[in-house]
Design a binder for these strands. Structure first.
Lengths: 238, 238
DNA sequence: ACCTGAACACCGTTCAAGT
DNA sequence: ACCTGAACACCGTTCAAGT
């Protein structure tokens, strides 16, 4: 807690909104502030009281725009889902689906702290079902029948969920055992894990992701420039 | 909260442990009680105070066996990981790896409420790294080289993580939008989603899981009895 | 050595009250 | 109409105290 109002009368600061020229509270302002708060402090710091402090209002004022914290979380998830671009209609269907997978992964990296909520949140808002419908239609173009399209959508979704969670909250950054084993123990007891460690490093994540995606979706088209060294990677930004 | 001590003096009940013949508190007893509490009430009900009530002791007594709630969570994850059987050494490597995947999925269904914690928990206890080492060795037998083995382990892990989360906490059972769209909206705006709904039903989960696993790992060996209708499923129990 | 219970610094949410 | 702040029923954890 570095800079938390050294003023002796914090209530004077909190009054700013009503007395001063502060813009009125809006849903968008609250969503932006919440995303910033989560990005800075993680989900552990995401409380309505902290959010009120960031917005210079009382926590309970937020209930005027969002009837509960759950409604606000829905707004955050919608914001993240809506941040994904529409797939480029000029690409062949299989490449469009591959792009969607890369765009989803890019989204998980744009909202790393929020992603553990996004991953298991039902997408049954208008924004959410629009994303699902759009993706299912591309899958249908790829497979040519509804059943295979549904299964491809689902298995690709499992894979994207797991990848995003592992990369944002999992082995690399997630909660560790309170008393983890040390490197000497690994070297002694787990030789295959020791030999695998270099392929688990962050620099290998792109190649691993593309390998799994190719297995689920079919191989990517031959690279235009030869001999890139197998580092396909996620190139698109947003 | 159906049956919560109608007695007018709950403190008398809490005293039972010290005065009576109650067995002493052990780590195992606490882990079992915590798993039961989570299974009954979900992670939302998993507090040290509730756990103390289930064990008829003060919440603070738990600190004697586990220095923090995080240490207890490590114990729960270890318990779940240790519940998976060792793979049958008589099977060919690829089938052994497929079994491990099915065993992991079975574990996620044995601890559905806990699984959202298991999925992102680093497995760096002795039990955890033993599971990783054992699985990596099978993957190494399948691929024949360390790099492909590491990537196969990782991508299969992503897939298992996503599957387990989706089946235990995701679209089917997970948190819903506070104000979801209704069926009429889906039928009108999302025809491909409407056509896909039947393949998303719980009865299709086994077939979908096996389809994705076959894509990542290679097809399962031909079924012994012909014309089973594509419903391979997860047969082993534990 | 093992367990207790008051206390501390937090939560989300309700509600009567202010302007 | 919009915002406040006290209050309620919870958290994990600390700590001095009991037996």
């Amino acid at each position: 807690m570095p800079a938390r109002a050294p003023s002796p009368k914090p209530s004077a600061l909190l009054k700013r909104r009503r007395g001063g020229r502060a813009p009125p509270l809006t849903r968008e302002a609250i969503v932006e502030a919440a995303l910033g708060l989560i990005a800075r402090e993680g989900l552990g710091g995401f409380s309505l009281r902290n959010l009120g402090r960031a917005l210079r209002c009382e926590a309970m004022s937020l209930y005027h725009l969002f009837p509960s914290k759950q409604h606000l979380v829905d707004g955050l998830v919608d914001h993240a889902i809506a941040s994904m671009p529409a797939p480029d209609a000029k690409l062949p269907p299989r490449e469009r689906l591959r792009r969607i997978a890369h765009d989803y992964r890019a989204m998980s990296r744009r909202y790393p702290q929020l992603f553990s909520i996004i991953a298991v949140h039902r997408l049954n808002t208008p924004t959410g079902v629009a994303f699902i419908e759009r993706t299912l239609r591309v899958a249908r173009e790829v497979t040519g029948d509804d059943e295979s399209a549904a299964r491809l959508f689902r298995t690709m979704g499992y894979y994207l969920m797991g990848t995003g969670l592992d990369e944002t909250s999992g082995y690399a950054k997630g909660p560790s055992a309170a008393e983890p084993v040390d490197g000497a123990y690994i070297a002694r007891e787990c030789p295959q894990l020791a030999r695998s460690a270099k392929y688990f490093a962050e620099g290998e994540w792109d190649a691993t992701f593309d390998a799994g995606l190719a297995a689920l979706l079919g191989p990517a088209p031959a690279m235009r420039k030869k001999k890139l060294g197998g580092k396909a990677g996620t190139r698109r930004r947003r």
